[in-house]
Nucleic acid binder design. Structure first.
Lengths: 197, 197
DNA sequence: GTCTATAAATTGATAGAC
DNA sequence: GTCTATCAATTTATAGAC
């Protein structure tokens, strides 16, 4: 079915373009015309695939969510040691540090913008789920390391908070050094937490 | 000079209204009409006091900055022990936890929005200065506790990152518990860091 | 299914009377 | 200095031709 194939192709191309622009310029500063242009789709056609700008943003969030779960699954398969899995999580922002410094965390900054721009709506709730996915997965890893459920949850919240706060600060101050040194510190903390007996 | 007094009065009333709305709805979702209404000033009059919406936002940031410096000065006078000063900083978000849960940190969320909405402009740079004020003051306190300049800087970045990340997470997840438990943990960390010999 | 043209709404900014 | 009325621009969303 070539028609359906082309359709799905254009749809995912729109999502890809929107994901990039939402990260770089944010939701408000990204117009549908921008997305259409980057995806090489005529403006009026966007509404055939997505009824509203909000729906397009929701699709972007779902794509982020799928990508996150995919990475988590990959790391779980790659390492038997949960600590090594968490170390991969810590290294990811450093591997794309240019982008983090210039535009912030693609998940955290989107969450924050949607909380202001669309607080209470399904869109903001979808955004919030992104951070939940992080915390839930981290909590699983800490539990696998031997922490009790409540403790694992607290450690997960601490890890995600530290990462998000550091990315916000490093982005705002445009400091790659801050990002690197703080993430190194978090890794040291990670190596010593929930010690094996 | 009663005319000038009324003028200054209206001006500062506009800033007060804008500060409240910027925190609750963010920059983009706050229209000049909203600000004018809350400040009880006719819409067309806003432009007499502030040439553009950006200038109004800059005035809001300056007012945040002044309030921050005032608080820091107060705490410095109140406590000879820098650790006690930093503890006050940690308690402040808990004292206004309802507002933090519902709208996030008034400084951090503004920074993040301006980085997306007005990246590179004087307005975004003014916003970034807010976080710098935090870090600089914290670094001074850690140095007064006996830390070397570089170490004090790193500790300040860690403290501010943890606070900002926690507020982002607690706001996004609407969890007062998360806010309280993580801030308690940060306070425990603070009590043990840079130990007196 | 695809696209052009345009409607509709919001809102920042200004002109000009008083 | 103060305010009303309005302009101008942006952008989401839709109507309708092909």
């Amino acid at each position: 079915m070539p028609a359906a194939y082309d359709s799905a192709e254009k749809r995912s191309e729109l999502v890809r373009a929107a994901r990039e622009l939402l990260h770089q310029r944010g939701f408000h500063r990204t117009s549908l015309a921008d997305v259409a242009e980057l995806a090489r789709v005529p403006l009026g056609n966007v509404h055939y695939y997505f009824r509203t700008k909000e729906r397009l943003a929701e699709a972007v969030i779902r794509s982020h969510e799928a990508a996150l779960r995919e990475r988590f699954e990959l790391w779980s398969k790659k390492h038997a040691d949960p600590r090594k899995r968490l170390r991969e999580l810590l290294r990811a922002p450093l591997d794309s540090s240019d982008s983090v410094i210039q535009f912030g965390c693609p998940h955290g900054s989107l969450c924050q913008e949607l909380e202001k721009l669309a607080s209470g709506t399904p869109l903001a709730k979808a955004g919030a789920r992104l951070l939940t996915v992080y915390v839930d997965w981290c909590a699983e890893q800490f539990q696998a390391l031997g922490a009790k459920p409540r403790e694992a949850r607290a450690l997960a919240e601490q890890l995600v908070s530290s990462m998000q706060g550091t990315m916000l600060l490093a982005h705002t101050m445009r400091s790659r050094e801050l990002l690197a040194s703080q993430f190194r510190r978090i890794e040291v903390w990670l190596n010593g937490v929930v010690p094996k007996n």
